[in-house]
C-alpha cells in the first residue's frame, strides 16, 4: 500500500528532485559530453568526474555540463574543449596532470621508482649470488694439513663465534 507523504516532506522532495535539472543531467544524454566529462573533474568537492558527479543541486556540475554541451554542439574538437576548460578554470579542472613542465614529474616519477626498484633488485640478486663463503679463509682458519671446511660449516662457525663474542660482551 502506498503511503502519502506529509506536505512538508513532499514539498521538500519536489524541490530537491526538481533540482536534478539544475545539475544538468540532461546534457549527459550527449555521448560526447559524457566522454569528455570523464576527463574533467567536478569542482563541488565530490572528487568525481563531471560525468559522474551525482550530487543533488550541485553548483558546479550543472553549469559546467551546460558549457560543455554548448561547445560540443558548436562542433569544437575534444582537445580544444579541454584547453578551453583549462584556460577558464585552471589546471585543477583536468583529471590528470598535463604532461608538461613540472607536472611531467607526476607522470614519470612512478616509472623512475620502478626503474630504481629494478636496479635495487638487480643489486640484491648480484649480492645474493656473490654471497659464497671463501674456502681459502676456511682453510686458513682450520690450520695446515686439515681439509678445508665446507662453506656451510664455515658459516656456522662464524655464527657461533659471533654469538660467543656477543655473550662475552654481555650483549645477549
Amino acid at each position: 500500500m502506498r503511503r502519502r507523504p506529509r506536505l512538508r516532506n513532499k514539498l521538500a522532495l519536489v524541490a530537491l528532485l526538481s533540482g536534478v535539472l539544475l545539475t544538468g543531467s540532461v546534457p549527459l544524454q550527449n555521448p560526447r559530453v559524457r566522454s569528455i566529462g570523464e576527463l574533467l573533474s567536478c569542482q563541488c568537492g565530490c572528487g568525481a568526474s563531471l560525468s559522474s558527479c551525482n550530487m543533488q543541486n550541485c553548483h558546479s556540475a550543472g553549469p559546467l555540463r551546460e558549457h560543455l554541451l554548448q561547445m560540443v554542439e558548436a562542433g569544437i574538437g575534444d582537445d580544444q574543449i579541454l584547453a578551453t576548460f583549462e584556460k577558464e578554470y585552471g589546471k585543477i579542472i583536468l583529471r590528470k596532470p598535463p604532461a608538461e613542465g613540472f607536472y611531467l614529474l607526476g607522470w614519470v616519477m612512478p616509472f623512475i621508482g620502478l626503474g630504481g626498484g629494478l636496479a635495487l633488485v638487480w643489486f640484491m640478486l648480484q649480492r645474493y649470488m656473490a654471497k659464497r663463503p671463501t674456502t681459502a679463509a676456511a682453510g686458513a682458519s682450520a690450520g695446515a694439513g686439515v681439509e678445508p671446511d665446507s662453506p656451510e660449516l664455515t658459516r656456522y662457525r662464524e655464527r657461533i663465534e659471533k654469538d660467543l663474542s656477543d655473550m662475552d660482551s654481555g650483549r645477549k
Binding site: S49, K91, I92, W107
Partner: peptide
C-alpha cells in the same frame, strides 16, 4: 606537492591512476 611548489592546484584522478 604540486601546489606547494607551483602554487597551482591540480587534480590527479582515475585517468592517471589507471594509466600508471
Amino acid at each position: 606537492i604540486s601546489e606547494m611548489i607551483t602554487g597551482e592546484k591540480i587534480t590527479v584522478g582515475a585517468p592517471f591512476f589507471n594509466k600508471v
